[in-house]
Simulated scan of single mutants.
Amino acid sequence: MKILPNKIIGFFLLFLSLTIVVKAQNSKPKFKVIAFYTAINDQAHISFVHEANRSFPEIAQKYHFSYDSTNNWENLNTEFLSKYQIVLFLDTRPEEPAQRAAFQQYIEKGGAWIGFHFAGFALNNSKFNQDWDWYHNQFLGSGQYKSNTWRPTSAVLRVEDRKHPATKKLPETFKSSPNEWYRWENDLRKNTDIKILLSIDSTSFPLGTGPKAHEIWHSGYYPVVWTNKKYRMLYLNMGHNDIDYEHKTNKELSFQFVNEIQNQLIINSLLWLGTKKKR
Score class of each variant (00 low, 15 high):
1 M>E: 06
5 P>D: 10
6 N>Y: 10
7 K>I: 15
7 K>H: 14
8 I>S: 08
10 G>C: 06
11 F>G: 05
11 F>T: 06
15 F>L: 14
17 S>Y: 08
17 S>P: 09
18 L>E: 03
18 L>R: 02
24 A>H: 07
24 A>C: 11
24 A>R: 07
28 K>H: 09
29 P>I: 11
30 K>F: 13
34 I>D: 11
34 I>S: 13
34 I>Q: 11
37 Y>W: 07
37 Y>F: 10
38 T>G: 15
38 T>Y: 14
39 A>G: 10
44 A>C: 11
44 A>K: 04
45 H>A: 09
49 V>Y: 14
51 E>R: 11
53 N>I: 14
53 N>W: 07
60 A>R: 04
61 Q>H: 07
63 Y>T: 15
66 S>V: 15
66 S>W: 06
67 Y>C: 05
69 S>W: 04
72 N>H: 09
75 N>Y: 04
76 L>T: 00
78 T>N: 07
82 S>G: 02
83 K>D: 05
85 Q>F: 03
86 I>F: 00
86 I>W: 00
86 I>G: 00
87 V>Q: 01
90 L>S: 00
94 P>Q: 08
95 E>C: 14
98 A>E: 12
103 F>W: 06
106 Y>C: 03
107 I>E: 00
109 K>N: 08
110 G>I: 03
112 A>N: 02
112 A>Q: 00
120 G>R: 03
121 F>R: 07
127 K>V: 15
130 Q>P: 03
132 W>V: 01
133 D>K: 03
134 W>G: 01
136 H>K: 04
143 G>H: 11
145 Y>G: 05
146 K>A: 09
146 K>F: 15
146 K>M: 12
147 S>K: 11
152 P>C: 13
152 P>V: 14
154 S>N: 08
154 S>K: 11
157 L>I: 14
158 R>V: 03
159 V>Q: 01
161 D>K: 14
162 R>M: 10
163 K>D: 07
165 P>Y: 04
166 A>L: 05
167 T>H: 09
168 K>E: 10
173 T>R: 02
175 K>E: 01
177 S>N: 03
179 N>D: 04
183 R>L: 10
184 W>L: 02
184 W>V: 01
189 R>K: 13
190 K>E: 14
190 K>S: 12
191 N>C: 02
193 D>K: 10
195 K>C: 06
195 K>P: 04
197 L>V: 01
199 S>C: 02
200 I>E: 02
201 D>A: 07
202 S>A: 13
206 P>M: 05
210 G>D: 06
210 G>M: 05
213 A>D: 13
213 A>R: 15
215 E>C: 08
215 E>A: 12
215 E>R: 14
218 H>C: 04
218 H>G: 05
220 G>D: 05
220 G>C: 05
227 T>N: 06
228 N>M: 06
229 K>F: 10
230 K>W: 12
230 K>V: 13
230 K>F: 11
231 Y>K: 13
232 R>F: 04
237 N>V: 09
242 D>F: 15
243 I>C: 13
244 D>S: 11
251 K>P: 03
251 K>S: 03
254 S>D: 10
257 F>D: 00
259 N>T: 03
260 E>Q: 09
263 N>D: 12
265 L>M: 05
265 L>P: 00
268 N>Q: 09
268 N>D: 11
271 L>G: 05
272 W>Y: 13
272 W>M: 08
274 G>K: 00
275 T>P: 00
278 K>A: 05
278 K>Y: 12
279 R>P: 13
